[in-house]
Nucleic acid binder design. Structure first.
Lengths: 160, 160
DNA sequence: CGGATCATAGTGCATATGCACGCATCGCCC
DNA sequence: GGGCGATGCGTGCATATGCACTATGATCCG
């Protein structure tokens, strides 16, 4: 069969769907970061998570989820592999027995510093690929539109 | 504890990370579509998948993955729930025993038609939220930047 | 004090994502 | 026609995502 023949009726997968377009680009861009971070055995989601713990004593799970703008239960599971390798720790709050504080371990901080340059490589690759000014325009849009949509699972709060 | 106090050092979860910004907006926007499609028990990923099967006799799995710009193995698994409910079918190609053709069942086509208006609601909501011209600008960027990045798992092909 | 209510976190379930690997088949070439 | 590399697919593994539900602890109020 001819490997390059176009599909009869199905060409553009995304059509006019904003969501599919977003997901598609996100998939490709995520791969850039994940490949770049693979030498340190870290994914971009994890790098982002660790970044948010820098310089913080301990953050309640819900608050970290808010900060990351992600579902609290998603965060709980995303923490699991990081707990296993000992890059983060989870300890009960002395003030409130319900609260569990997430904190960066020394090892985690070290790993973050090691990962940082790899992340910068990925970010630089993206910048070079689409151009600095175009990237700035994209960032502006992404940042501007996020607050217009409902946050995941009752988060929100902190306007900035 | 004060529920609205800002986190000491961790404010913006995404910082300057293009990937995190993309993933964040994608999460929020996906929720809009998934909520809108929930009455028909469909997710936006599935809606997009079914859309690509409209008017097609049967598409090899790999080619459909290319069209959707998604990893072939991801598609294989995304097909599973649709196979179970009978909206798509998978049959061996008469020409090549290796190839499995994905096709939309009559039920699946019917479900797609039913879902279409719900998808339109979501798309309309997004349009109204960020504005038609802004959305057009976003689409332009998303479409323009996708081909600049390596496709997932050796896909690509179709420049169109 | 004690119960209703609220807040915080984890789990079960289901899907989404992609890499590494293995299996079967196809085409080609001798 | 018997290899042999290439091709098409599926699976195992691990993470990412979010909804519904549960369990536990804090708070308020009579």
């Amino acid at each position: 069969m001819s490997p390059t023949a176009p599909i009869p009726a199905a060409r553009s997968a995304v059509g006019g769907c904003t969501c599919s377009k977003l997901r598609r680009l996100t998939r490709r861009v995520t791969a850039v970061y994940d490949r770049a971070l693979s030498p340190v055995g870290m994914r971009v989601t994890q790098y982002s998570l660790l970044s948010n713990l820098r310089g913080v004593e301990g953050v309640p799970v819900s608050r970290l989820a808010q900060s990351l703008d992600m579902d609290r239960t998603t965060l709980t599971r995303n923490l699991k592999p990081l707990l296993q390798v000992g890059w983060v720790a989870l300890e009960p709050s002395p003030d409130d027995a319900r609260v569990r504080l997430v904190l960066l371990t020394p090892t985690g901080a070290e790993q973050w510093r090691a990962a940082r340059s790899y992340w910068q490589s990925a970010q630089q690759e993206v910048t070079a690929t689409i151009g600095a000014s175009a990237l700035a325009g994209l960032h502006t849009m992404l940042d501007e539109y996020v607050p217009l949509f409902r946050p995941v699972t009752g988060n929100e709060g902190e306007p900035e």
